[in-house]
Simulated assay, not measured.
Amino acid sequence: MPTRSTLNPPSRAPSRASGDTKTRLLDAAEAIFIDAGYEGMSMRLITARADANLAAVNYHFGGKDALIHAMLTRRLDGLNQNRLALLERFQTSLGSQLTCEHILGAMFIPALQQSRCLDKSGPALLRLLGRAYTDPSPFIRNFLRGIYADVAERFFRAFQTVLPHLPREELGWRLHFCIGSLSGILAAADTSTLIADFTQGQRLEDSQLIGRLALVMVAALKAPLSPPNGACPFASMFTEREPVSNSAAALAPDPLSAGPFAHHTASQHAIA
């Protein structure tokens, strides 16, 4: 993985035109990533959209991977610094009175504020975040885990302090589903249009928007634990299924009851 010095090479006293080329390349890579994800990006598409050539990419960034790193870090570095600063402020001022709502506020308030700044991607920032956190490519996932692992761990530990009864694995599952669901919505839709549809055109303040999100997410995070060794309420639903008339289908193993291997494979997909 390129180092930060690779992502931000020393200045060579670039001209105004050179600086504009670098910005155009970053903007083009960001727009294509938002629309098509990592697998849909190509140097041909990026350079065509930026009205630049491959030599410019190599000059400013050293290659495609470093360009994509720079594209993401120019939005996420400052955002995550603001998130951690707000989280620390809440932790310091509230102490034991810290709640799930405060931690979620530290995650979302800086993102909404940054999304109002046109020079920091503006409304496209939310789609960029959604795409970054749902993109299935190992390249993007390894990048986020490597660069922002400390940020994720700081927030995870904060949630542990306010939800001490949840085992680490259970808390991880709940955060994975909550944040993954929200990211999927942000990546796939025009959030402003979606909100307008839900509110029937009435203005929704940022505080109200975060409040709506928090209601659902906090409810999921605080849901009661399943009783140890308790019966799953869905087990009887599967046993009461209509028998399969097709003999070939009847002989096929049921993936939901295929034993420990099937459960292990599903877990790998869930945490990947």
Rank of each mutant, 00 (worst) to 15 (best):
R4N: 13
T6H: 14
S11R: 14
A17K: 15
S18R: 07
G19M: 14
R24L: 03
E30W: 04
I34E: 02
E39A: 13
D51W: 07
A55Y: 09
V57A: 09
Y59T: 12
G62Q: 08
D65M: 11
L67D: 09
T73M: 15
L79Y: 14
L79D: 12
N80M: 15
N82D: 15
N82L: 15
R83A: 13
L84V: 12
F90I: 07
S93F: 11
S93M: 12
S93K: 15
S93L: 14
Q97W: 05
C100S: 07
H102Y: 10
M107C: 12
M107E: 10
R116N: 07
C117E: 15
D119N: 12
R127N: 05
A132V: 11
A132K: 10
T134A: 05
D135F: 06
S137R: 04
I140G: 06
R145D: 15
Y148K: 09
V151M: 08
A158E: 07
V162R: 04
V162M: 03
L163Q: 01
P164A: 05
L166A: 00
P167Y: 00
E170M: 02
E170T: 04
W173H: 08
L175N: 04
L175E: 02
F177K: 06
F177N: 03
C178P: 04
G180H: 05
S183R: 04
A189N: 15
T193N: 10
T199Q: 10
Q200S: 06
R203S: 07
S207N: 09
Q208P: 03
L209Q: 08
L213I: 14
K222P: 05
S226I: 00
P228V: 00
C232N: 10
C232W: 02
F234Y: 09
S236G: 01
F238M: 05
T239H: 01
R241L: 10
E242R: 02
P243W: 00
V244Q: 00
V244G: 00
S247A: 03
A249C: 02
L251I: 03
L251Q: 11
A252M: 05
D254S: 01
D254H: 00
P255N: 02
G259Q: 09
G259F: 05
A262K: 06
T265D: 06
S267I: 05
S267Y: 09
H269Y: 14
